[in-house]
Nucleic acid binder design. Structure first.
Length: 522
RNA sequence: CGCGGGGUAGAGCAGUCUGGUAGCUCGUCGGGCUCAUAACCCGAAGGUCAGGAGUUCAAAUCUCCUCCCCGCCA
């Protein structure tokens, strides 16, 4: 069965921000993990390009909406490339094929009697693309999230009969694994319990959108259109836009990874739409937390936004991925702290892991003709490092299955710490000064090199670059599942203790991870 | 108003369900080692577990009240 996972389709109102990068990075780690386990993966990301807000932003910039979308979505594409995101698809909702898919989907919903005409009257926030409650009240209300004036709307729209799915949605969200993390489930439950109301799925007088077939003057509400992008994305690059065909490629999605702000759209509206069209429901909706910076909300007005492109440029892929995945519990809010960022990168990656490989490789080369030394007992399952490796392996797998990147990272690190400790306890550099200890030292170094290899293999989903660099220094073939020439041996097999071949020639070691020296603040 | 999440060493978190010496990572300080990227290993300091009351032989953990932060409803 195909493992389909999605990031949100990012709204191209502005250039990519760190939050989008965070989601995408996490999905990338998850996608790589699933591929390494041997799953067929479709990793979907993309851009949501319709709606009034985009139309206005484009106008303000003196561009056509299409030109604006082309420019911004190109920024996303470039950014993901630079981050080496392993997405299989990058869907744009302005893709002509998407129109067809939306139309076909809508036809099913309409045939099912779930499309009604209704009058919508109320205060509208263009930034949210949402009607706000308590109409008629106050003469000039503001949007609570955007602090911007609301606009009065009075229009006849098409409505989706969400109310009809009350019971099914209640059942769905009551399922233990559907909404993750579990702590967010209550919020949605409360919302649903208040009674689901039909919501409008079209807008009138809004040219920048997909026309609703059979309803002159109406275009689809951005969310209705955007969510369906997940299905359009399943089409192979040159395939005909056929809903059934798209679905056959990997629907339902195993998981939608999103920010917590759009949980309701994914856990309530979207499943109801799918039910109406008679389609299968996604397995999980994971709403991760938000990032703050040094304790403060990031925002243009505060001037403290971290630009993911700058961050990549200055710090590199491994460092940022490590910090975000290793230190911030996925699902909870997290704070980006520059000091801690460089502390962790330097400690964990450069010192604990990088230096472990460096020191061990140096000793092996010096005393054993540049080779992986011969083993006597080191390959046995009862070896202390074999036991540590097994603990790390099972913890990493359990954690990644649960999207707990943090504890996966910690378990990997723990193995490197054990190996460093083992080295200090055994002190092969002292032993070597005595007579007849060669075999013993060889055995010790073998075990530590093997532990380093396992660290590198375990690291592959989280830090593919660092993993590759480590494996090359261990005379191994890198595992990068995204590139050609990677090691085809199953990942799980490669995690078995004792895989390193004695006698393999070790290349001259050079630091696999440079220390992060941030002279200026980010 | 209501609802949800949270408040544990300087920082970030675990532990709370299933009461019983308060643990991890980073930072700080001291020691060890010299194979290595001024690295690695060991040890120490640092906590009235938000506050109060209660249940109990025993509470970070269970009950009630209060305060503070974040979010949902908006």
């Amino acid at each position: 069965m195909t493992y389909t996972l999605t990031t949100p389709l990012y709204y191209v109102n502005d250039k990519p921000h760190l939050g989008s990068a965070y989601t995408t990075l996490a999905c990338d780690a998850l996608a790589r993990y699933q591929r390494l386990k041997g799953e067929a993966v479709i990793f979907i990301t993309g851009c949501d390009e319709h709606g009034q807000k985009i139309q206005r932003t484009a106008e303000a910039a003196g561009l056509s909406p299409q030109a604006h979308c082309d420019a911004v979505s190109a920024q996303y594409r470039d950014l993901w490339e630079r981050w080496q995101i392993s997405n299989d698809r990058l869907i744009r909702t302005t893709d002509p094929r998407h129109r067809q898919i939306v139309a076909q989907f809508f036809a099913r919903v309409e045939a099912n009697g779930d499309v009604l005409e209704g009058r919508q009257q109320g205060w509208y926030c263009v930034a949210c693309e949402e009607f706000k409650d308590d109409p008629a009240e106050a003469t000039a209300p503001h949007c609570p999230t955007h602090q911007r004036p609301l606009e009065w709307r009075d229009e006849v729209n098409l409505f989706f009969r969400l109310s009809r799915y009350q019971q099914q949605i209640e059942q769905l969200i009551a399922q233990p694994g559907f909404i993750q993390p579990a702590s967010r489930r209550r919020e949605v439950e409360n919302f649903v319990k208040q009674g689901l109301r039909d919501f409008s799925i079209s807008r009138v007088n809004l040219p920048w959108g997909i026309p609703v077939p059979g309803h002159e003057g109406h275009t689809f509400y951005v969310w209705f259109d955007a969510l369906l992008g997940y299905i359009t994305a399943l089409l192979e690059p040159n395939e005909e836009p056929d809903l059934a065909l798209a679905l056959s490629h990997g629907w339902p999605a195993s998981v939608h990874v999103i920010g917590k702000d759009i949980l309701r759209f994914h856990a309530v509206y979207w499943p109801a739409m799918l039910l109406s069209a008679g389609l299968e429901l996604p397995g999980m909706v994971f709403g991760h937390g938000f990032l703050t910076r040094e304790g403060q909300k990031m925002g243009k007005s505060l001037g403290n936004v971290l630009d993911p492109a700058d961050l990549l440029e200055r710090c590199g892929r491994d460092a940022v991925r490590w910090y975000l995945l290793r230190d911030i519990p996925f699902g909870e809010d997290g704070d980006f702290q520059q000091q801690r960022f460089s502390d962790l990168v330097n400690n964990d990656l450069a010192n604990t892991i990088g230096n472990l490989l460096n020191r061990t490789s140096s000793m092996a080369r010096r005393w054993f003709e540049d080779c992986v030394p011969a083993r006597t007992t080191a390959a046995e399952a009862s070896h202390p490092l074999a036991i540590a490796a097994e603990t790390a392996r099972s913890t990493v797998i359990g954690s990644l299955d649960a999207l707990d990147f943090r504890s996966a990272a910690e378990a990997t690190l723990q193995l490197a710490i054990s190996a460093n400790g083992f080295l200090n306890d055994q002190a092969p550099w002292s032993l070597m000064k005595q007579e007849g200890t060669q075999a013993q030292v060889a055995d010790q170094l073998y075990a530590v090199l093997e532990a380093a290899r396992i660290v590198a293999v375990l690291m592959a989903p989280l830090l593919p670059d660092l993993s590759s660099r480590m494996l090359l220094q261990l005379a191994q073939v890198p595992l990068d599942s995204g590139s050609a020439g990677y090691n085809p041996r199953p990942w799980l097999e490669q995690l078995a203790w004792g895989g390193l071949e004695p006698g393999a020639v070790l290349p001259e070691p050079s630091p696999v991870m440079a220390r992060l020296e941030l002279d200026a603040p980010l």
